[in-house]
């Protein structure tokens, strides 16, 4: 008897879910675990940087406080966090991400810990335009239970500055020179800010509003507990949450580097 009805029921459930909001784009995430964890405070730990661009990690760390606090969470001070972890023998981001979350969260009294990894950050210079390819993964884990609460992987292609003078050759030279100059710091900040917005602020994909947000009550509709257990869109395994069967972030990063045509920046790889 069950055999006849079950496929019909399953079909109806799938249709309902489809209509409920995952019309286009990735499957909506389930916020059951997130809400159960009753997160009021977030600890942002130093960022792992797999890319050849040595500046990328700093930019992420310093641009994360604002959107997370504005989202309505208490965010621990990132500079003090970094220094205190160093004092506790946790200076290397790889080590921090690999340490049990309750151990790290316990040092600060944090409800949850946010781990960010820059998998790729690569500037591409072309005659007419320059852009930056970025690939990153954000992982949020429960400070008490070591559970994965939420995870987001994004790949973005961001157009960078350089409206140009109209003279193609001059612009090409300027673009080439700019690559070595810190003038790009505005671009770094812009890319990091965009990346944060893409990861954090999208309904049914990002993180819910925190307790200090006037929009907190919108969580029921915008970040529902749909019960699917789907909390991550990541296709790779983060250092802070290794998953069997998925390629590690380090491996994905290495493959990306190997696929990139040799540039002068390749020398920077030798850390």
């Amino acid at each position: 008897m069950k055999g006849k009805f079950l496929p019909i029921v399953a079909g109806l459930v799938l249709v309902t879910l489809a209509m409920a909001g995952c019309v286009s784009g990735p499957a909506p995430k389930d916020y059951t675990a997130f809400k159960q964890a009753a997160v009021r405070s977030l600890l942002v730990v130093p960022v792992i940087n797999h890319s050849v661009d040595t500046k990328a990690a700093d930019y992420f760390l310093t641009t994360l406080s604002v959107p997370l606090a504005e989202r309505g969470y208490y965010v621990f001070p990132v500079n003090a966090t970094k220094k205190l972890l160093e004092g506790d023998g946790l200076a290397d981001p790889q080590l921090i991400h690999g340490t049990s979350t309750p151990r790290v969260a316990g040092l600060f009294g944090a409800d949850a810990v946010l781990y960010v990894e820059v998998v790729e950050w690569r500037a591409v210079y072309a005659i007419l335009s320059s852009h930056v390819v970025v690939h990153f993964v954000y992982t949020l884990k429960d400070g008490k239970g070591n559970k994965l609460l939420w995870q987001d992987e994004q790949t973005l292609n961001v157009q960078t500055s350089g409206g140009g003078s109209g003279n193609l050759l001059a612009d090409a030279i300027v673009a080439a020179i700019q690559s070595a100059v810190d003038k790009l710091s505005g671009d770094y900040t812009r890319v990091a800010t965009m990346a944060n917005a893409a990861a954090l602020l999208v309904d049914k994909q990002g993180i819910p509003y925190g307790p200090y947000s006037p929009s907190f009550s919108q969580n029921n509709s915008k970040f529902p507990s749909i019960g699917t257990g789907h909390v991550s869109n990541a296709k790779l395994a983060a250092v802070s949450y290794p998953v069997e069967g998925l390629e590690s972030s380090a491996h994905v990063a290495e493959q990306a580097k190997a696929a990139t045509p040799a540039e002068p920046a390749a020398e920077a790889k030798k850390k």
Partner: peptide, 19 residues
């Protein structure tokens, strides 16, 4: 999604200073 609302806090140059 309604995120274009008044910010909760006054940040000044905090992010740049941290960097």
């Amino acid at each position: 999604s309604g995120c274009a609302q008044k910010s909760l806090y006054e940040w000044g140059s905090y992010s740049q200073d941290l960097l």
